[in-house]
């Protein structure tokens, strides 16, 4: 069963809303960062490689 009587109750968390939501927001943001960093790193690595190969072909 859902633990809250209304959606407002869910958001305010009985006066603990600021603590609960900031802990979840920060935690999930840092998790997302951990997931995105290796993807960006891979793209940068492949960009560098293709740029270098294009330059070598022109020489």
């Amino acid at each position: 069963m859902i633990a809250f009587a209304s959606f407002t109750d869910f958001l305010t968390m009985g006066n603990h809303g600021a603590y609960v939501w900031s802990a979840y927001g920060l935690g999930l943001a840092l998790m997302a960062l951990n997931a995105i960093l290796p993807l960006l790193e891979k793209r940068r690595y492949l960009d560098d490689l293709s740029r270098r190969r294009r330059r070598e072909r022109l020489l």
Binding site: G14, N15, H16
Partner: peptide, 15 residues
């Protein structure tokens, strides 16, 4: 949303 609140800590325990 579904776990019951803690009898001492209320909803802050959800952290």
């Amino acid at each position: 949303a579904f776990a019951p609140p803690d009898y001492q800590q209320g909803n802050s325990f959800r952290i």
